[in-house]
């Protein structure tokens, strides 16, 4: 197993290399001259050229690329064009809110969706199942930001139970931290909850009609054990896959969520950097996002081997 994990880890390197090439050249061929933007609106031609030389933007593109790659290999993502601060530090500062929000959203979605899906499959075509299916359709149809505004209106503005927006770092105490995450997590999680609940139900339904479930029942096992061990473990692979896709979508979605809830995370950093054409930051962010997605994918793949002993590795 260890060898398998190592092998899979090594296999991600070429993927990351391709991402790196893509990231670098995509931004170079995008319209807009960063030197002109940085120099300011009324800058003279000379001033613009001076900025270009200072940032190394005047050198051949392959040379720029080689240098960038060399630094990248050393964990150096460059410095921000505007603030002159190292990109790694800028990203590091914004990491906590994004990680916290992504994980808490996932936790809310998974912790509710799986039990809901299991019960729906167990009670198939009965009332509980019908309610779950209605929720699944609605939850999937309503965009996250709309849910967010509705939830903010009810729980923050009207009832005033929770803060309207903003983020409190965990260093300021656990409860303020959690309090701030509840609304965004629920708002963001509804879609994934609906999606995961649906997949859980479908996957469980298929498994529940299998012979080995009849065998489990012929042993007189408790319903709980039949559902949660015998059935759910067999149903897990598609569920885990969808959770993985959910994580990827969540990461892409932080831009919107962090804007709606005014959370100073990577999403906001992305928006700011893109608007200012702060190349090093944008490149760094895309690389980080890509690396996380590749890693999530890897974890999902490896989890298959744990969930299903028939999968060879």
């Amino acid at each position: 197993m260890t060898a398998y994990i190592l092998r899979r880890l090594l296999a991600t390197l070429p993927v990351m290399a391709v991402v790196a090439v893509f990231v670098f050249f995509l931004l170079r061929i995008a319209p807009g001259d960063p030197a002109a933007i940085i120099a300011g609106e009324d800058a003279t031609r000379e001033a613009i050229e001076a900025v270009r030389a200072k940032l190394g933007l005047d050198r051949p593109i392959l040379e720029q690329f080689a240098l960038w790659l060399w630094r990248l290999a050393q964990g150096d993502l460059g410095v921000s064009i505007f603030s002159n601060l190292p990109v790694t530090r800028l990203i590091g500062q914004r990491l906590e809110p994004t990680v916290a929000l992504t994980l808490s959203t996932l936790l809310v979605a998974v912790a509710l969706a799986i039990p809901i899906g299991v019960v729906a499959a167990w009670q198939v075509r009965k009332l509980a199942d019908r309610l779950v299916m209605i929720f699944a359709v609605l939850g999937f149809a309503v965009p996250g930001f709309l849910a967010a505004y509705v939830l903010i209106y009810i729980f923050a503005v009207q009832l005033q139970w929770l803060p309207v927006q903003g983020y409190r770092p965990i260093a300021e105490g656990l409860w303020p931290f959690v309090e701030g995450l509840i609304l965004p997590s629920v708002a963001l999680g509804v879609t994934y909850m609906a999606l995961i609940a649906r997949i859980t139900r479908a996957s469980m339904l298929e498994v529940l009609s299998q012979d080995y479930i009849r065998t489990a029942n012929s042993k007189g096992l408790a319903t709980r054990r039949v559902l949660l061990l015998h059935a759910l473990k067999n149903a897990a692979v598609p569920i885990v896959t969808v959770i993985g896709i959910g994580i990827a979508l969540l990461i892409s979605g932080v831009v919107i969520t962090e804007t709606v809830f005014n959370i100073p995370g990577l999403g906001r950093l992305t928006v700011d950097a893109v608007l200012k054409r702060d190349y090093p930051i944008v490149q760094g962010l895309i690389l980080v996002f890509a690396a996380v997605k590749v890693l999530v994918n890897l974890v999902i793949d490896i989890s298959y081997a744990f969930l299903d002993p028939r999968i060879r590795y």
Binding site: D211, Y212, T215, N217, S218, K219, L229, K233, D308
Partner: peptide
């Protein structure tokens, strides 16, 4: 009460040994 009898007092084996055992346990 029926569950207490199944697998204890009355047990059953099935035709397909391939599919009657849980593949992940």
């Amino acid at each position: 009460e029926m569950r207490a009898i199944r697998g204890h007092r009355i047990a059953m084996i099935f035709q397909e040994p391939m599919t009657s055992l849980n593949p992940v346990l």
